[in-house]
Structure formats: structure tokens, C-alpha cells
Nucleic acid binder design. Sequence first.
DNA 1: CAAAGAATTGGGAGCGCTCCCAGTTTTCCC
DNA 2: GGGAAAACTGGGAGCGCTCCCAATTCTTTG
Lengths: 340, 340
Amino acid sequence: MIKKMTLEEIGKLAGVSRSTVSRVVNRQPDVKAEVRERVMEVIRETGFVPNSAARSLATQRSGILGLVIPRSVATFFGDPYFARLTQGITQACNARGYMLSLFLFHSNNDEELLLPRLSQGSFLDGVIVQATRDDDPIIPQLMKAALPFLVVGRLNTMPEGVSFIDVDNVSGAYKAVEHLINLGHERIAHITGSLDNRASLDRLIGYKNALAAHNLPVDENLIVDGAFTEDGGYEATRDLLPHQPDAIFAASDIMAIGALRALKDAGLQVPNDVAVVGFDDLLSSYQTEFALTTIRQPILRFGVSAVEVISDIIENGNTPPRQKIYDTELIIRETCGARQ
Amino acid sequence: MIKKMTLEEIGKLAGVSRSTVSRVVNRQPDVKAEVRERVMEVIRETGFVPNSAARSLATQRSGILGLVIPRSVATFFGDPYFARLTQGITQACNARGYMLSLFLFHSNNDEELLLPRLSQGSFLDGVIVQATRDDDPIIPQLMKAALPFLVVGRLNTMPEGVSFIDVDNVSGAYKAVEHLINLGHERIAHITGSLDNRASLDRLIGYKNALAAHNLPVDENLIVDGAFTEDGGYEATRDLLPHQPDAIFAASDIMAIGALRALKDAGLQVPNDVAVVGFDDLLSSYQTEFALTTIRQPILRFGVSAVEVISDIIENGNTPPRQKIYDTELIIRETCGARQ
DNA sequence: CAAAGAATTGGGAGCGCTCCCAGTTTTCCC
DNA sequence: GGGAAAACTGGGAGCGCTCCCAATTCTTTG
């Protein structure tokens, strides 16, 4: 069991003052090399780590970032999206010396109780918030507090002056559909995610844009909601089959898997009878049964980038607001038929 | 934008001293009702929240718990197990007023750099650590630091005096297999998880115990490693089929899904030709294609309980070490055939 | 060799809170 | 109504650190 030391005590052991030890700990230049070495030695021997509360109090900085998952999306926390995002964020935090504090709101009550503590207690230097429903009070509340924050994803209508990072869902969907069109498909169906969600909406727009750009008609019978679940994708595909699509673009890989399964059960060949393209490319590690062509979102880099942006905001203020949109990448595997 | 206030300033506004405001904020009894009300009013108006660094410095308590995912298991972070566990933990943290700090170690370097800061900086009141490989240095390091901690899961050989909570994998597996035996099955196969893992090992023991208790032979051909993945379960099942099992107990639901798929592809009926039982019951929300009989682990409650135990240790010390083992529950659905 | 300048070091003050103790006010009871 | 006890309140000290400024030591240079 290691005794907790103070700067003062370390100083005594090394025969210098509190201030000098502080300089050594904080890597400030004005210390004679020989003295620095002596102090470092004592620090090494004692395993001294400065008290973070005292440091925060003195510097008005905590070195802690918050990751806030609002109530309205906390139920999706099991989604691999969050796992990856969190991995990216922690990776970047570790690299930059930030600690990460996780706020998963389960109830209204949680939000009401925690939000003020979180935004006012000067416990956090900045916050990364997952985008939520437009009418969620979190973002307005965060704006009122003088706390730097960054939204990951977007709302349908984004308040003025808010920093965010997001993926270009419109162009991602466009790429997927254009790829199918280039392969000669004409009756391209779309399985959407839940449409209360900006990402789903954007992917739908991209789908329609691509059809329009290639003079293909939009057939509403070929657009079905799959609710972002595998079963939803399965059911949607069953509904789609009577309308004879020759390709399906699913707004998520999970739904694409459901679609593939439905096609298999219906005795259809992929990609010969029906081609399939998904969206996300988050599943690769879990699911290799199908070699799914998909649109890759760089979620890991996304998390890393979130930390970079928020720390930029912390250092330099939120003007102008940072608004970054990441590109997606078409990953061609086998379900689209391009590899035959 | 709300100005950050101090106790002193709130006191001035309410016409009382710093100390009285402190008493009100901390719900101490010795304040006249009328004064208390006046102070509360000012706090409400100003949205005052006490500075947490100052409070931590004075009380030597941070109100923050750490959740540590060691490097050797961080790659599994996408597993729904962690999502659920984290949900349970955050839920309990929110309820008890703790903040949660997440440490996901990605590299050796992360561990070496962060562990001392984490255990010595008096930044955390206590730590919940996911169990890891036996030779991982985290637990020994945590023992050396004077920081309360609790292990979730178990190592193969658990150091003396360490507190942990775990699920009774042996009896869970026993229940699953006994259920199959009671249904009249005799050639019961077992798809194991990765065997470098205590949980897999324990489930294997439970499987063997149940066979032994009912005088059934252990046939090594009926025991195959499925590596905790769906594909692993699929492959394992293909390897199993030549040995004609009449039932399969998979050590995780994911592997059970793989098994079901393999059986389907082989043209076998479930449960008539082969019965299947899984383990976990964590997938229900994602996957409803098969009504899988399984052994439920109460992971959510597990997370909640972790917070309770660690805060008990924080308050009352780690003697005697807390060691709790949670029971599992057999969930009978359709793949076992009990419902026919 | 002295004076000026640069490099290094030490110590006071203060960050905002809690805790303790010494007042001060109120209440109670004979 | 007076004294003791109870209830309440205020202010000093201190938590361990950083930041600033003054003091000291070491270099340089004319």
C-alpha cells in the first residue's frame, strides 16, 4: 500500500520546494537538469501522482470529457455503432491524456438531475453528445451552460452555432444506389431505417437523388421501413418481393442481413436474382456468413475526431462552430454482383 | 450563459454565510426552516451547483467510480454483454449520485500510463474491473494501490482477498444439460466458448457434471470449440453432425444461432431432430428469428449490484472481501422441444 | 572585476469547498 | 424573569495544487 504524497513532501525528500516539484511534474522548462533528475528520481521511487482535485481547483480544468447518450437513444446502446464510437473516443482520450466520463440517461429524471450537475459543476471540460430527437431539451440546456460541447450526428433542424460532426449519409446512399445502377439494375428497392431519424431520412434522400440523376422513376412500392432491425429487414423484403425488385439497398447492414435471409428463404439467388447493398460496415467482426457489399462509415476515426474537435473547442472557443461531415466509402464484396 | 457562482456569493445574496449555504446544499439538519427556504430559493434562481473539484479536495472523495476494461478484453467491447453491464452500472450510478468514468485500454502503453494515474491520483473513489487473463498485471497493481476495487467475473485462480461478483456458470450449464436430459436426450453435444476463459471452462464443467450425474458418458467427439462467434457455432455444428448428436448445448446464444443455422442448412428439424439450448439471453432484442431456449444471466442486475458492492466497500472497507455469485435461470422457449 | 542580465528557485496567495469550534440567538422551565 | 440548554450561525483553517513575483544564484560582457 502506497502512501499518498504531496508536492511538499516530495520536495522535502528531494531537497527542493513545492514549486520546483510542480515545475518538474508539469514539464516546465526552468529547472536545472540536475535538480530535475533528482526530483524525478524521488517521484519514481514514491510513485507520486499529483492530486487531481487540487489541480483542477487551481487550474479550473478537470481534464475530463463527458460522453452523453440522451435518454431517447440510450436504448440503442447495444448497437455496435456505440461500441465503436466509444472505442474511438477512449482511444483518443487515452492518447491525449483526457479522462472520459460516461452519462447514459435512462429516464427523464436522470436527465433533469444530472444535466445541471454536469454542465454547472465545472466537473467536465467539454461534452460529446450523441444526436437525439429534435425536441430533446439536452442541446438547448447545454447551450445555456457555458460548457463546450459537440454533437455527434445531426438533428433534423440543427440550432444555429452548434458544432457537430456527422457522416455524409446522403452521398453515401447515393454511392450505393449509383453502384447498383451502374451494374444495370433498374428496379432498386430501399429498406429504410426508422424515419424519425435524420440518418434514415438522409439515406432515403440519397437513394432518391441517385434514381433521379439516372432518370429512374421512384416507385413508392419499392420503399419499405425496416426499423433498423434484422427482422425488420426480413419482413420488409417479403413485402418487397411481389413488386419484383432486382436490387435492394438497405439503410443498415443488419437489415441487409435480414433481407439476404429472406431472399434465401424465398429461393432467390444473390446477386443473380437480386443484388443487395447495405450501409455501416460495422458488423465485419461478428458476421461473415455473407460477403456484403456496403457503405463504410469510419466510426472509429469518427470517435477519435470527436475528441480532437472538442478539445479544439475547449482550447480555442466555439467560434466559428466546427461542422465536419465525413465521407463514406463503398466497399465492394459479393452481394452486389460486381465481382462475378 | 450562467455565471459560475460560489458558496460565498450565494450566501451574500441570501444574507447568510458560506457555512450556512454549505449546510443547505448538503442537507444538513441544523438550519432554520425559514433560512433554508431563502437559500434554496437563491440556489434555484441562480442554478448554483457547487464546484466539484473544491468539494473533492476538501472531502477527499470524488464521487466518481471507474469502470476498467483491460486490454485483453477490450476487443470484446462490442459484445452485448458489455453494453448491458454498462447500462446496469450507469443506471445504479445515476441512482446513487455517482459519476462513472470509463477506461478502455487499447494497448499496453495505455495500461502503463493510465493505471498509476487512475489508482494514485485520488481521482476515483473505487473501481469496477472486468475480469481478464490470469497473467494480466491489472489486478495486482490495483491491489498495491490503496484503492477499493471489485472484479466482475473471475479469473481461473483468483488472488486471495479480492472482492468479486460473478454468475454461476457451472450450475447454469448444469441446468441446461439436465433439462435436455430430462427431455430424453442422450447424445448431448457441447459447443464451448474460447477455453482461455473462465466462463467457458465453468460451463464445460457444468456440462460434464450434468452428464455424470445422470450416468451419461462424456464423448469428446461431442465437445467442440465455437470461439463465442456465430460462425464458430456454425462450423462447430458441422463438425458435430457426423457424430449424430440429438441435442446441442451451446455456451452462448450467438453460437447457438450459428448452430441453428447449420442445422437448418443440413435439413434437420429443430427441436425434433436436434434440440438446442443456448446461454446468455442477451440477444432477445436483436434477434427473434429463433425462439431459443437458453440460460439467462441477469447482467443488468449484475451491473447494478456491482455499484452497490463497490460503494459498500468504499464505505466499509474490503474486509471481509465480498464475493457474490449470481444464479442463472432456465428460459424455456421452443428450440428445446419442451413446449411441443 | 563589476554590473547587468539571464537562469533558477522559493514562498505567498488563492482556487471553492468542508469541518470544527466559538459565538449568538432562541427556547424552555422553574 | 433569569439561567441553562438547545438551536442555529459565522469564520478560521486547511485540503494540495498552480501562478506570480521576489529573491537568489549563475553567466556574460564591457
